[in-house]
């Protein structure tokens, strides 16, 4: 009722209010931040699109001519389709593994954590306390050819591609999973934490076995967390190039590697912009479809 009062409370008020309603106040509050986002997020996105249509024969020094070069997109697609597919594939695989690893962890902390809950949660975000590049470099040590992981797998006669882990696809995936796992666990935890354990007891009381208790009660109720977690994992993973660069070879290169090298090394802005813009469009479409399908509009 009080919420309604703020919206429609003044209809037909005969006398003047002591203080006029400040209709402009929200706009004033939004102005600086909104302007910042428009100027440094929206406008750059438009500029990126414009850049993607420049004549690719120009250069930074001589400047670019706007020639509405839509062929930049066709060129990008034909040449770098494998990188695109690899990015999306790696990101999808990473997301699935993160979900499989992250769900038990979030579930254990939220429902079985007891008084250790906060400490366990701190442990989940603890990796953030140190630089992610440094941590990714540590994976180089862990997966190195004579490191204990490779030695152990050898002793167990597990076949490895080329007899090594570093500079292979599994290494890149392991790095991606490692880097983005906390992004999966935190939203999962947030939604599982709200789950009333009595609901699980009620399900048990109503003849649900543990599996049904999970699939019929816990999982559906934690769907908002699953949706948010998968998005927070998939999006950065699809755009990542650090893991492929440090833990893989050019056979593992993702679209991010191509974009950054075209922008920062080759200086081919129009093609790089076309790739970058395509990546953004692809991810936004995927996110939109996914959120619609999952039926939770209030994701974040």
């Amino acid at each position: 009722m009080s919420a309604l009062g703020h919206v429609g409370g003044s209809t037909g008020t005969p006398a003047k209010l002591e203080k006029p309603r400040k209709r402009w106040l929200p706009y004033l509050l939004l102005l600086p931040g909104g302007l910042w986002l428009i100027l440094f997020f929206a406008v750059p996105a438009i500029q990126l699109f414009a850049t993607s249509l420049y004549d690719p024969s120009g250069s930074l020094e001589e400047g670019y001519a706007m020639t509405w070069q839509f062929s930049n997109y066709a060129d990008a697609a034909s040449e770098y389709l494998p990188h695109f597919m690899r990015s999306l594939g790696y990101a999808a695989l990473t997301t699935v593994i993160c979900l499989l690893l992250g769900y038990p962890l979030a579930y254990a902390i939220a429902l079985k954590g007891g008084r250790w809950k906060n400490l366990l949660l701190i442990c989940v975000i603890a990796p953030f306390f140190t630089s992610f590049l440094i941590r990714t470099l540590a994976w180089k040590v862990i997966l190195s050819d004579n490191g204990w992981v490779v030695t152990t797998l050898d002793a167990l006669h597990v076949p490895l591609p080329d007899g090594r882990l570093l500079a292979t696809t599994p290494a890149v995936i392991a790095g991606l999973v490692y880097n983005f796992l906390p992004f999966m666990v935190l939203p999962l935890y947030a939604s599982l934490e709200k789950l009333d354990p009595r609901l699980l007891e009620a399900a048990g009381d109503l003849y649900a076995r543990p599996v049904a208790r999970f699939t019929r009660v816990a999982l559906p109720l934690s769907m908002p967390g699953v949706v948010a977690g998968t998005l927070l994992t998939f999006i950065p993973a699809a755009g990542d190039y650090i893991n492929a660069q440090l833990l893989g070879t050019n056979r593992q290169y993702m679209i991010g590697n191509v974009i950054q090298s075209k922008f920062l090394r080759v200086g081919d802005y129009p093609n790089a912009a076309a790739l970058s813009f395509t990546l953004m469009a692809a991810i936004l479409v995927l996110v939109f479809v996914y959120v619609r399908r999952a039926g939770t509009d209030e994701v974040l």
Partner: peptide, 10 residues
């Protein structure tokens, strides 16, 4: 919802 590489490059 935008990858960092897109924000950075734009």
């Amino acid at each position: 919802a935008t990858p960092e590489i897109v924000m950075g490059s734009s």
